[in-house]
Design a protein around this nucleic acid. Structure first.
Length: 461
RNA sequence: GCCCCUAUCGUCUAGCGGCUAGGACAGCGGCUUCUCAAGCCGUUAACCCGGGUUCGAUUCCCGGUGGGGGCACCA
């Protein structure tokens, strides 16, 4: 069998969303699994809706997700690579003209009302279509049979001529799609199920050109989660845009892992798995046939699991990227080692990078908010003011060199008053951080240092 | 309206004629703990309905119903 050549063919007419990303991913996975070629082709024939901004977004999103393409435009938008170009349909006009002429020469196309139509072969008859409210001409012809790699055998009647060039001279999607797939020697067309009904047209076109059709594989769609409503996930839905996850500093490998699992699984209970394993195990017959609903919570969980296991350097780098985009520059201005220490305290505790700001504010400013509800709760229990006073008195003699020595110091104090560590912890935390969530109080004390701790404890008294 | 695809816990799914129907997320309960998370343990929860085929159907076939998609001089 000839080497696999697959393509992802987006239109730069809107934001890059999760459904497109998965179609791209399944193509990419199949190419990498089989050692084939992954092609990026830009279907920018709709001049009215195309934009360079959206085009760049496609490159950026694919790159961010780690889906590298072997042929297609370069990610910086300058030039392209591969021997089957150009890879933007807007630059392939001459090829479409040639193919149109072929069909004309074969007697498989004709002009009518200024448009060019593809001609079905067979006995003709007219019938009134009450959906379209008009008389249509049909052809007696056997149904198209598609051997879909995911769906199995699909039969569909395709019995009407259809437009391949509009009267404005531009070719339509079905035509350019098939021509490009022929020219680029595509072996497997992996695309969303929304194209399944179009496939019969495409098969007829291949027949018209006298070319064998490629393999087809129609993957299920991603639907809205129940809270979002019903139907296909659309660009307007929350969580639908790849850009959004990038801006929220999700780990791309977590997102890729999650979307790979929407409609595919490795055949066992594994969920979190490195991309190399997914590449190894991915195959078309393993793809599900039914649509999947998007579940942001599960994606969040996947992201957290990945975050937890990031090496310190990578996590700190991610944190730095995050803080660099925050309006308040205090964290980014902070001492490198100080910043690193705080980020590593936060790493095991947060669920996503974008929690970092709120989770660590009090390390970078003395002007942090005191959570009113937490304050009310903490101050209502026992005699927190007394505990605070005792801590302030004890701290000058406590050894702040390590968490262990701080813990020992507070415990000694607690024992001397016949109290527990917990009696000091909550109020100390409130005073030092303004909240009830965070790393261990001993680590907070150590990182903040005696002076700042004393000031903060004093302020709450 | 016509055509096509599809159907297991709320969600993602395993199952490929005989299972106590398994896992994960979410939920709930507990343990641990200096808070909050995480972690660990436990727990609630599913084969859409009706006919066949079969000794036996979640599994195969048909019909219904539900869900999704397509029926353009959009892509």
């Amino acid at each position: 069998m000839s080497p696999v050549r697959v393509r992802f063919a987006p239109s730069p007419t809107g934001f890059f969303h999760i459904g497109s990303a998965r179609t791209a991913l399944f193509n990419w996975l199949y190419a990498r699994h089989t050692g084939g070629t992954f092609i990026l082709r830009i279907e920018d024939t709709d001049q009215a809706r195309n934009s360079e901004q959206f085009l760049q977004l496609i490159y950026d999103s694919m790159t961010w997700l780690g889906m590298d393409w072997d042929e297609g435009p370069n990610a910086n938008g300058v030039g392209e690579r591969g021997g089957f170009g150009p890879y933007r349909q807007s630059q392939r006009g001459a090829i479409y003209q040639q193919y149109k002429q072929k069909l004309l020469d074969f007697g498989r196309a004709y002009e009518k009302d200024g448009a060019v139509w593809f001609k079905m072969l067979g006995e003709r008859y007219s019938i009134f279509d009450d959906h379209r409210k008009k008389e249509v001409e049909k052809v007696k012809i056997a149904p198209v049979v598609i051997e879909d790699q995911i769906r199995g055998k699909v039969e569909r009647q395709e019995d009407e001529d259809f437009v391949i060039f509009r009267s404005d001279g531009n070719p339509v999607f079905h035509f350019v799609n098939v021509v490009d797939d022929i020219e680029m020697k595509i072996t497997h067309v992996i695309r969303g199920e929304d194209h399944l009904s179009n496939t019969s047209k495409h098969v007829r076109l291949y027949e018209g050109f006298g070319v064998a059709a490629p393999m087809f594989a129609h993957i299920p769609l991603i639907l809205k989660s129940p809270e979002m409503g019903t139907g296909k996930m659309s660009k307007r839905d929350k969580g639908a845009l790849i850009e959004e996850y990038q801006q929220r500093h999700f780990l791309p490998e977590a997102l890729v892992n999650y979307i790979a699992l929407l409609g595919w699984n490795p055949g066992d209970d594994r969920e979190k798995m490195p991309i190399t394993d997914i590449v190894k195990l991915f195959d078309l017959p393993g793809v599900n046939q039914s649509n999947a609903k998007f579940d942001g919570k599960k994606l969040n969980h996947m992201n957290m699991v990945y975050l937890l296991e990031q090496p310190a350097d990578r996590f700190v780098a991610l944190a730095k990227e995050y803080f660099a985009k925050q309006p308040n520059g205090a964290a980014i201005m902070a001492n490198e080692a100080y910043f690193r220490e705080i980020m590593l305290l936060a790493q095991p505790k947060i669920k996503s990078v974008d929690e970092l700001g709120a989770y660590t504010v009090y390390f970078f400013t003395d002007d942090f908010l005191i959570d009113a509800k937490v304050k009310e709760k903490v101050m209502a229990k026992g005699d927190p003011k007394a505990r605070l006073a005792e801590l302030i008195a004890a701290i000058p003699v406590i050894d702040f060199s390590s968490d262990a020595t701080i813990e020992a110091g507070i415990k000694t104090l607690a024992e001397s008053k016949a109290l527990g560590f917990g009696d000091y912890q909550a109020v100390a935390r409130l005073a030092a951080t303004g909240t009830n969530a965070g790393p261990s109080i001993t680590a907070i004390f150590r990182v903040l240092g005696k002076d700042r701790v004393l000031v903060r404890l004093g302020q709450l008294c």
